[in-house]
Write a protein that binds this DNA or RNA. Structure first.
Lengths: 339, 339
DNA sequence: CTGTTAGCGCATTCAG
DNA sequence: CTGAATGCGCTAACAG
């Protein structure tokens, strides 16, 4: 026998299809006794409720929320900040009894899934720019995180202000400052930004952070020398180490490293210590993000904590709420031994 | 205007709905010229193909594959082995143009999504046992990884043999052996297994590994003392360190540590070095899994490499292929400085 | 409280 | 190559 359908059980029980439907979806539409009878009968028949696919076609909503990652799943899953975000989203979605569909940011076609999902939570601007265009015109609900799309709700922190705060907390009047940036230009390896054209200046959190660093430096009369601003294509150990090595071997040697992620900062500290540079005496280091690992490492890192798990929860909640506002989440500057 | 449907564009173009459908799904059913004309017309109309939800209802398949994680998403994304597996699955699914729905292993109801997906790839026995029961009777395709379900295809490595091999590679006749196990009993903290009842003896990879260790020890005439077999609830630093500390402070002190994951082994090595125990002179350590981090750490770890990313790819391929066999993937014993 | 009806958007016959 | 018809499984009106 094949799987029972609403119609087949209705016939088997001698009632109308609407009654079965109501038994599952609108308990107030029939007597408790009848409902009870129907439900137990369904259980023995092996019918466990209306077909969700048909339900979705009919109602126009499925209870599935797609999370679009900026990069490949590959990268995202290995990045502690993204993982934390995903955890938050998953936790809140579970609370809402919704499901999570992971969608890679370098996919090409949104419409392979739009019809299945209730909407999109978009974590960081997708690497594939065509996706952004599609998200713009998408009929479904779209919420962005860590970037903005005109007319769409979003969840962010104030990256510029946070970066400014963190820089102000460590900078001194005579500092030689270097910045280890993340995805500032379109280059596949670590390298000084130099005069390369900046990348999607508008939406990137990195550029907002750079703005903040620079505002702080201006406030103190400091300038960022050419070759003291480095680009890193990804937030990982290798790229960061390469950039850190280069920057720390320059003359004059930097006295402060402003890093656009904690992973970069940790890697830079390792390099510095290997080079015999003492932290914080000879070099102060600041990170960004706030990840657990910095608490286990010594010296502990001064950093902006942005609580990505809560950001994930907030995003999922805002998505669900239907509110169309752009909210700014709080962050926290935490001073560590590195400054 | 609302979103165009197959019917509405058919009317607009003055052809039948079947023709539009064929233009998208069965190119051989109409002339190239007409198809071309229809496709471009659709593009300008803003119709980007048949509604996937309706298509799924009609055809009974959606192109979405659910991956059921054994634990919460929370735990899974932070575990390098699980992450690697997920990466492999994602990579292969992307190749197949399929989508990935993440499903937590402690959810209760499979049927909230069965109707949406083409089936399930189940990574490790779900923590919630009710899910297993549902998977058993599920009409859709189910493929298990790292455990088996009667009548279902699976992807595994030979854990028993791999554990045996790794133990044989390091054990010497007069060794004092300790085992740092993973999820051997149902306890929320690290503790000696003692006489606690073993947990789901059948399906767990941990028990297969323990079997392998024990076979190797028997072969060498060694026995595993009470209190030298420890349970860890999760593969993480804290639980592992606690177990390692306890075990290494016992008298006589173990000369070999057989660890059921690389994360546990790394943590144990850190503890040992802190205690002033030299590796491998005073203590040899063996891990299991094969993760990148062990290559950066010194001493490098002797371990069984099981290439979880390839396992993920293999799982996704086997799922797609429709073959119902249970395949055993190769593993590789790699000797490091820890033995 | 219950049954009837009309779609949700589509794919597949089948006759032309 | 085309068009009409049927139903995938369900829900929301509406009438009783």
């Amino acid at each position: 026998m094949s799987k029972p359908t609403l119609k087949s059980v209705a016939k088997a029980l001698g009632v109308s299809t609407a009654t079965i439907s109501n038994a599952f979806n609108r308990p107030d539409q029939l007597s408790v006794a009848l409902r009870e009878k129907i439900l137990t009968a369904c259980a023995t028949l092996g019918y466990d409720g209306p077909n969700k696919a048909a339900q979705s076609l009919r109602k126009g909503s499925s209870g599935i929320v797609a999370v679009i990652l900026s990069d490949s799943l590959e990268y995202m899953v290995s990045d502690p900040v993204a993982s934390q975000f995903l955890q938050g989203v998953a936790r809140e979605l579970e609370r809402q009894q919704k499901h999570l569909l992971l969608f890679s940011g370098n996919s090409t076609n949104l419409d392979t899934i739009t019809d299945f999902v209730d909407g999109f939570i978009c974590y960081g601007a997708p690497r594939n720019l065509a996706l952004i265009e599609q998200l713009r015109h998408c009929k479904k609900r779209v919420l962005t995180v860590d970037f903005d799309l005109p007319g769409r709700p979003s969840v962010n922190i104030d990256n510029e202000q946070a970066a400014y705060d963190s820089a102000m907390a460590v900078l001194k009047p005579d500092d030689i400052v270097a910045v280890l940036g993340l995805r500032l230009i379109d280059a596949p390896d670590s390298q000084p930004v130099g005069s390369a054209p900046m990348w999607d200046n508008q939406s990137s959190v990195s550029h907002r952070r750079l703005d903040g660093y620079q505002r702080a430096m201006e406030a103190l009369g400091l300038t960022l020398g050419t070759d003291y601003l480095w680009h890193t294509p990804e937030s990982n150990q290798e790229y960061a180490a390469k950039a850190a090595k280069a920057v720390l071997n320059q003359v004059p040697q930097p006295s402060v490293l402003l890093c656009m992620s904690d992973l970069i900062a940790l890697s830079a500290m390792r390099v510095a210590l290997q080079l015999g540079i003492r932290i914080p005496e000879q070099l102060r280091v600041v990170g960004f993000d706030g990840i657990e690992e910095t608490l286990r490492y010594h010296p502990t890192l001064t950093s902006v904590w942005q609580f990505s798990d809560r950001k994930g929860e907030a995003a999922a909640r805002a998505f669900q709420s239907g509110v169309d506002s752009c909210q700014l989440l709080p962050y926290e500057l935490r001073l560590g031994e590195s400054s």
